[in-house]
Each structure stands twice: as structure tokens, then as C-alpha cells.
Design a protein around this nucleic acid. Structure first.
Lengths: 183, 183
DNA sequence: CGCAGCAATGTCAAAGTTGACATGTCGGCT
DNA sequence: AGCCGACATGTCAACTTTGACATTGCTGCG
């Protein structure tokens, strides 16, 4: 259902669009939040049209189809936003790795964390520029801000973890103990 | 592959375990990071055993099967951690909602945000207690900390968004303008 | 002209995920 | 004895998601 909501919202905001347009827009700021490729979007649009949420206007020289939102579509979107309780579960491979970090010997763990830190910084910089170019009232403004804050949290965590690992290494060196069981 | 890595790691850390054990452990701190139910875990364990990553020791009065990690399993886990580049895409329905917030009239948007804030605070409190009860060296310590920071970021974002919406409402009231197009 | 590249839509198999259904054991309580 | 809840494993249909394969029209370039 999330895909439907996203598509309805995109059409609601930008007006009648083609599947191609929507696919492109999914590659923009929305990509930080939800992903879908054309192979998922095209069939879904047709199903939504069949369900009366969208109206198709097929034409265009290259077989372009334009979908517009119907009253039913608008109602559906509103219902989804207000009456569906959000799925709180998050699945993040990065977080899973974080979970598994303690399995690695310190050196390797530190390398991984530093690598992660680089990635996060890169994405943050990217988002930051997007954020600057976005107008005050831009549609994706809220999501952008959210993404930025999440990334900042990831960065801070990585810094914390690196610090912690280095401290525990120092402690280990001082007391001259052998390391405990690692992978 | 993430499921495999998680299962290998859980067995690596806790020693030989049954599918039931692993299912329970997936409901613990790991649930904040990755989810899997027994219907996914049981078949996967058997596949992993067939692939030589695990060793089965079937017995126990209630048909309990105990899986232990093999050398190949350990290698596989290590490879996954160090040689696979992490999937950076995140899919979060909550974030998607954040994206769509501007579609709602202010009052409804505020209600949603406040609701979200409550949820986040509740989960944060829950994690916080988990964090306190966790020993310094607990396996899940890093993931727990990461989860806490993510939730804090979500909370701060919600507060920021509420503030922003209220400010824009004031501005609107002052200038006595009619609202722009909303859902 | 031919060709590359983008516009535009589609299908399909494979993999991942969920929730429901199914089954049987064991221990403790009434 | 009967029942409940925890232990323990499994299957299956439905749905979502991904990546590959496939096709056609238009546009600009050499």
C-alpha cells in the first residue's frame, strides 16, 4: 500500500504524470525514503486505474500514458495518511552491520566503521546541497530535513563507536590482556 | 543474504541453537534492526545446513534440532561483514509519511506529527531501559546505541516540524491570507 | 543514412517476506 | 483427566521487490 500512497501523492502534487515521470521522481528526494523501479510502477499504475484511483489518458507519440488522480484516489490517499497506522519496523542493512560489529577484531571493526563514516558523510553532503537548492516550501522539505537528521545521527554513532573501540583497545593494551573471543 | 548473516552471527555468539531459540532472539534487540519470523527462519536454517554453513544435530524430546556453525559458516559470515558493501537503501514507512505531510491541512498534519512523537518517545523509553539493563560488553550494545540515536533524531525532527508548522500558521493568520492548495 | 541514446512501456522469473494454517509434545494447574 | 500455555517445527498462498530481458519511437550527430 505504501507504493500506492507514494504514487497518489506524487500525482497529487505534480499533476497528471506518466509512469516514466513518476519513475524519475522516485529517483529524486523520495529515493531516500522509499524505492520503486519502473517494473513495479507501471503495473501498479494500471492496477490503480482499474481500481478507479487514477484515470488514464493514453496518447502521445511514443505511447505515453498520462495518469491523473480521481476523487476516489484523493480519498484513498487521505485515508492512508490519517487512518493507517504506520509500519514502525525498519529494516536497515547498515544497522544490522552495526549489530554485528562486535564480532570482528578491533582493527577490522575500525576499518568498517571508518568506511561507513565516509559513506554517511558523502550522502550527507549530497543531501545538504539538495536541501539548499530546495525552496522553503518545497514538497520534499520535511523528508529532506528528516533524512539529514538521520544521517547526522548515523555519523555521530559511528564516531562514538570508533572512539569506544579505540578506548577499549587502549585499556586492553594497558592491562596487557589477551583479547577475548572474536571471529 | 542479510538473514543468513544474522543467523550465523547469532549462533556464533550464543553457540549452538535451535530455530526456536533464534526466533526468540530475533524478537529481542535485533528486532529494531532486522525482522524475521519462524516461517522464514526454519527453512533458511535447513538451506544453510544443506550449504554446509551449519551443522544439524537433530534430537531432543520435542523434535528439537540444534544448529551449530561450521568453519565454512564462520568464513561466510566474515566475508559478508567485510567484503559485501552494505545496502544503503532504507525503506521506512514513517519517513514516507514525513514526505507526504505537506499534503495535509495544518491541523491534521499537526495531529499526525504529535501522534508520531508519542510513538517515538515510547520506543525510545523502551530502548532506554534495554540499554540500561545491557551490560557494558553486551553483544547488542552498538546496535542499541545506534537505535537510540536514530530515535532521538526522529523525535527532534518531529519537534522541528511541529514548530515549523505552527510558525507558518501564525504567519498565515497574521497576513490573513487564504491557505494554498491542500488535500 | 545509420546509429547512439533517451523516452516510454511492458513482462517475467527469482528472491524475499508475511500471516495463516497445521501438528505434536511437555509441564503445571484445577 | 482435561486444559492451557510454552516449546518446537513445519508448509503454503499471497504479496512485494529486484534485475534482466524485450520492444518501439523520436532526436541529434557524424
Amino acid at each position: 500500500m505504501s507504493l500506492r500512497a507514494a504514487l497518489l501523492a506524487l500525482i497529487e502534487v505534480a499533476g497528471p504524470s506518466s509512469g516514466y515521470d513518476l519513475t524519475k521522481r522516485f529517483e529524486g528526494s523520495l529515493a531516500h525514503v522509499w524505492q520503486a523501479s519502473h517494473s513495479q510502477i507501471y503495473p501498479e499504475l494500471n492496477r490503480m486505474a482499474a481500481d478507479g484511483l487514477l484515470e488514464v489518458e493514453a496518447e502521445g507519440p511514443r505511447g505515453r500514458k498520462t495518469y491523473s488522480i480521481t476523487a476516489a484516489g484523493r480519498t484513498g490517499l487521505h485515508e492512508w495518511l490519517t487512518e493507517t497506522k504506520p509500519e514502525q519496523r525498519v529494516r536497515s542493512e547498515e544497522a544490522l552491520r552495526a549489530f554485528l560489529i562486535p564480532l570482528l577484531p578491533r582493527e577490522e571493526a575500525l576499518d568498517l566503521l571508518k568506511e561507513e563514516l565516509r559513506h554517511v558523510e558523502a550522502r550527507r553532503a549530497e543531501l545538504e546541497t539538495l536541501c539548499e537548492h530546495a525552496s522553503e516550501s518545497d514538497f520534499g522539505r520535511y523528508a529532506l530535513e528528516r533524512g539529514l537528521r538521520q544521517l547526522a545521527a548515523s555519523r555521530d554513532w559511528a564516531l562514538w563507536a570508533i572512539d569506544r573501540l579505540q578506548k577499549s583497545e587502549e585499556a586492553r593494551t594497558e592491562t596487557a590482556r589477551t583479547p577475548t573471543g572474536e571471529l
